[in-house]
């Protein structure tokens, strides 16, 4: 599954990188080193929705990222 959108950082709970996706939803990007993201950057992420996961950020569904590419 691929998602395109803009990356933001949410200072909530432990803090989390979010994707404001083109489908209008916000996803928490999990399973990838946060150092690779820059707030405001447009990216395409490949991975899958992890419906069973929980996090401290709780700001949107958790998307397990396998690959990130800048767009």
């Amino acid at each position: 599954m691929k998602l395109k959108g803009r990356v933001t950082f949410e200072d909530l709970g432990a803090g989390a990188w979010m994707l404001e996706a083109e489908d209008g939803k916000r996803y928490e990007l999990a399973g990838v080193d946060g150092g690779r993201f820059k707030a405001g950057a447009r990216v395409e992420v490949e991975g899958h929705l992890d419906a069973g996961a929980a996090s401290t950020a709780m700001a949107g569904p958790i998307f397990r990222v396998k690959r990130v590419t800048s767009v």
């Binding site: 709970g13 803090g15 399973g31 992890d50 069973g52 401290t56």
Partner: peptide, 13 residues
């Protein structure tokens, strides 16, 4: 029950 990034799975929880 949460890893270093602050996320975890339903089984551990």
């Amino acid at each position: 029950v949460l890893d270093a990034t602050g996320a975890g799975n339903s089984a551990d929880i």
